[in-house]
Amino acid sequence: MRLSVKKWLAPAVAIIALLVVWELVCRMEIVPAYMLPAPTQVVVALVDDAPLIWEHTQTTLIEALVGLVIGCALGFVLAVLMDCFETLYLAFQPIITVSQTIPAIAIAPLLVLWFGYGLLPKIVLIVLITFFPIAVSLVSGFRSVDPDQIDLMRTMHASEWQIFRYVKLPAAAEPFFAGLKISATYAIVGAVIAEWLGGFSGLGVYMTRVRKSFSYDKMFASILVISALSLALLWLVNVLERVCLPWKRAERKGK
């Protein structure tokens, strides 16, 4: 069998097999239906509740996107400043490393306490967790530039801005997109976590409500939507990367 066919066929068969086993376990009542709904029940729940879920999805999506955009912008500004001023780099590098170890779930309740139940605490949380992967990847990208390249630019009378625009920014583009992929998935998860802890709308709010009414099939439906949202956002970042970095495609083909 050709490798390209194997590449999609193998995971497809594995997923279908897993779903069939899951369906059978539920149908044969090995696990009670109220604890673990069958995949078909989850799909039915999703279709039944679609309008309501869509409404909540919109809130989550807006929070995630707004947070992600602000997080990217702040991460970019900090990375540029850290690249320009060595002292800032030395000062912030350890803070960034430590801040990465703080789990989102630990600060989310504080944010709800400080900023209430509206959109603000959600967006602040997403900014906090998406900002660091972006800043870290950009800084390492800026610093990965070959010093000889900068010397060469200097012999061509390039200004600092031109060195940034022609050499540093393109060098940081690939790590930036790697960071953006991590941040994009964090953004959706971050939004849902913040919504669990209090809010009026959003997939996290929907999940807490259906959990309280023991509608586990709806709970699984919302998990399905969250995972689909993350995948869609990843796909979007991939498309953006292809458009923004046309030379990378040629490099991959060459290999």
Partner: peptide, 28 residues
């Protein structure tokens, strides 16, 4: 900037086409 120089590494910018790399000194 008074003397041109060239190294063992070609130092072509990966994100510019060959012609844009060649005319980089002019563009700058």
């Amino acid at each position: 900037g008074r003397i041109s120089y060239m190294l063992q590494k070609d130092l072509l910018l990966p994100n510019l086409t060959v012609i844009d790399n060649a005319c980089l000194p002019l563009t700058l």
